[in-house]
């Protein structure tokens, strides 16, 4: 019945390194369903960012196909919202205008774009900072603006997040994760979230896909049915977390 949002079949990707070809992704197949919050979890070098960039349309896979709502991906576009690792805000635009940017590019009317941007900024808790420039924000706020900028795109079939909070200290990272969960609960979207942090994956995702490195392959695919908002210290949470760790060990992703 329903078409998967993303259908990746046999994606294989090489890129040129200093000492020859690097095999970033080895015949990876993955489907993402509507309104799924999917975390791709894996250590550095497992090709998780490469996979996200392929879906974002920023790079072409060497072989294999990726369909977005049954149509092949040709370059970047407003049908996907991207949150980068470095917030990559436009330094010359205010917070509000950063969030409006994609909407206006997509042909929204000015006042409609403004309303939508204000709404999303309220959800991420930045309603009072709309007229500030990026340099006036703290690191965490910048990341929230980056999330809002992607989240504002109502036409985006899915949101791609490339370790968006990995450069933030652990305490603020938890706050940002809470914000993200609250945002997701207010407005359910399909999310592909890339991370190397096990706890983060268990805290955020409905489904966790573990990749193992060199070359990047699918190790296993787990469901996480814990109700949201989750308690990082509940027995159920810790049980899921240890199951993830167990799977990683079993598939040789970690070597302890």
């Amino acid at each position: 019945m329903d078409i998967p949002v993303i259908e990746a079949v046999d994606v294989n990707h090489f890129y040129e390194g200093q000492l020859g070809w690097n095999h970033a992704l080895d015949h990876l197949s993955l489907t993402i369903r509507h309104n799924e919050f999917l975390c791709i979890l894996g250590p550095s070098g497992c090709g998780k960012s490469t996979f996200l960039k392929i879906i974002a349309g920023l790079i072409q896979p060497s072989t294999g196909s990726v369909l977005l709502n049954d149509r092949p991906i040709k370059g970047p576009g407003l049908d996907r919202g991207v949150v980068f690792q470095d917030p990559a805000l436009f330094a010359w635009l205010t917070v509000l205008r950063n969030v409006e940017f994609g909407l206006l590019m997509g042909g929204w009317k000015r006042h409609a774009a403004r309303d939508r941007a204000m709404h999303v900024l309220e959800i991420v808790g930045l309603a009072r900072q709309t007229s500030l420039y990026p340099f006036q924000l703290s690191g965490g706020m910048k990341h929230r603006v980056a999330v809002a900028r992607a989240w504002a795109l109502t036409d985006a079939a899915l949101l791609l997040m490339d370790e968006p909070f990995s450069a933030i200290d652990a305490i603020n990272r938890m706050a940002l994760q809470d914000h993200l969960v609250r945002t997701w609960l207010t407005e359910q979207r399909t999310v592909l979230y890339v991370t190397h942090d096990i706890e983060e994956a268990v805290y955020l995702a409905d489904r966790i896909v573990i990749l193992k490195p060199s070359p990047g392959r699918l190790a296993c695919d787990l469901r996480n049915e814990l109700p949201r908002p989750r308690d990082r210290h509940s027995a159920a949470f810790l049980a899921v977390k240890s199951r993830v760790m167990e799977e990683m060990r079993r598939h040789g992703v970690t070597t302890e």
């Binding site: 996907r80 980068f84 990559a88 994609g102 590019m105």
Partner: peptide
């Protein structure tokens, strides 16, 4: 120019002259 800022521009719908 920072490559991510440029990527951000492209991902948020700006291309060519825009």
């Amino acid at each position: 120019i920072s490559p991510t800022v440029l990527d951000a521009g492209r991902c948020f719908g700006a291309r060519g002259v825009t």
